[in-house]
């Protein structure tokens, strides 16, 4: 049994033959090559993510024995009926969606000028400095940033101290939905700036020059050229800010007031407090549904081409 020249590892003849056959098969059939490359991640994705979602959805139709706290694997619509009947869950869902929408809008309005400056005005050096400054908050813990906001918004916090210095009346926004909105807008802002920046940077300068040559003023160029071309970036950013707000429960818990519960808080309490996983699963389908609708709309606007 002579060792082949191409097998310094000393593979025996049978192993080398098999390897050659597999190599040949992969070479002749490119789709097989693609499949074998994709199969492991796809399998993991299916097992971990899709299967988890499926279990979540199935368990939403189960119940819990109130006495012993054990799962009742019996199909019923009880959880959804409770969600439909009790107005408190409508209020909480609407509050969650409303604040998520407000946060998204705020971030879009704040992020656009920053991204525009970074992409089209700033010189390469100051651009990289700006980039670092935008991303720097992401290096620190989310919790630290939320607690920092508590110190700012407190009655005797930085905000009121500054207002007092200017002789203005104190703002009483600590522990309220306003505080939740401000903090969310702050923590998710980088997720809006980066996609808008990417979209703006891709607009060829020649378009703007052509617009100017055709006699358009700055505002007209912005409306007809920049904004439509940047919109996919805005929508891509809004997917982040909207979904991140929709699923959060820590910020409402820490800076929220007497009625600041989000869907996430109810889900968290249902699992950790009342041990009612099926109800939590049922309520968790609401943000899933909202996000589904949102993504369909976003796809129509062509946002995924900018990602």
């Amino acid at each position: 049994m002579a060792a082949g020249l191409d097998s310094p590892q000393g593979l025996n003849g049978r192993g080398r033959g098999a390897r050659r056959r597999i190599g040949g098969a992969l070479y002749r059939r490119p789709w097989l090559r693609g499949l074998s490359l994709l199969a492991p991640p796809v399998a993991a994705f299916t097992a971990v993510y899709v299967a988890a979602l499926a279990v979540l959805f199935v368990s939403a139709f189960w119940g819990v024995d109130p006495f012993a706290g054990t799962l009742i694997r019996h199909f019923s619509f009880d959880n959804f009926r409770t969600l439909w009947d009790a107005s408190v869950y409508h209020t909480i869902a609407l509050r969650t969606i409303g604040i998520a929408a407000a946060v998204t809008l705020t971030d879009a309005l704040v992020a656009f000028p920053i991204a525009y400056f970074m992409a089209r005005v700033a010189k390469p050096r100051s651009r990289s400095i700006l980039f670092v400054m935008v991303l720097l908050p992401l290096w620190s813990s989310y919790l630290v940033r939320v607690y920092a906001w508590r110190l700012i918004l407190n009655k005797e916090g930085v905000l009121n101290w500054v207002l007092h210095g200017f002789g203005l009346p104190a703002a009483n926004i600590a522990y309220s939905n306003t505080a939740v909105w401000i903090v969310f807008s702050y923590v998710w802002l980088p997720f809006m700036i980066v996609p808008i920046y990417a979209a703006l940077e891709r607009i060829p300068h020649s378009y703007l020059e052509a617009s100017r040559d055709l006699g358009a003023r700055g505002s007209r160029t912005f409306r007809s050229i920049v904004l439509p071309l940047a919109l996919p970036g805005v929508v891509a950013g809004s997917i982040f800010t909207f979904s991140l707000t929709l699923g959060d429960y820590i910020t409402p818990k820490l800076v929220g007031g007497s009625s600041s519960d989000f869907i996430g808080n109810v889900v968290f309490d249902s699992v950790g407090v009342s041990n009612n996983v099926p109800f939590a699963a049922a309520y968790a389908t609401v943000p899933l549904l909202v996000m589904g609708v949102y993504l369909v709309l976003a796809k129509r606007s062509g946002a995924f081409e900018a990602l």
């Binding site: 407190n154 009655k155 005797e156 007497s258 009625s259």
Partner: peptide
């Protein structure tokens, strides 16, 4: 009572913060 409430505290440290900062 709800309209009088600043916050329903979940952690003892939350209440300490609320009293310390005058909220």
């Amino acid at each position: 009572q709800k309209s009088l409430i600043k916050k329903y505290w979940a952690l003892a440290s939350d209440e300490i913060d609320l009293f310390k900062n005058g909220d």
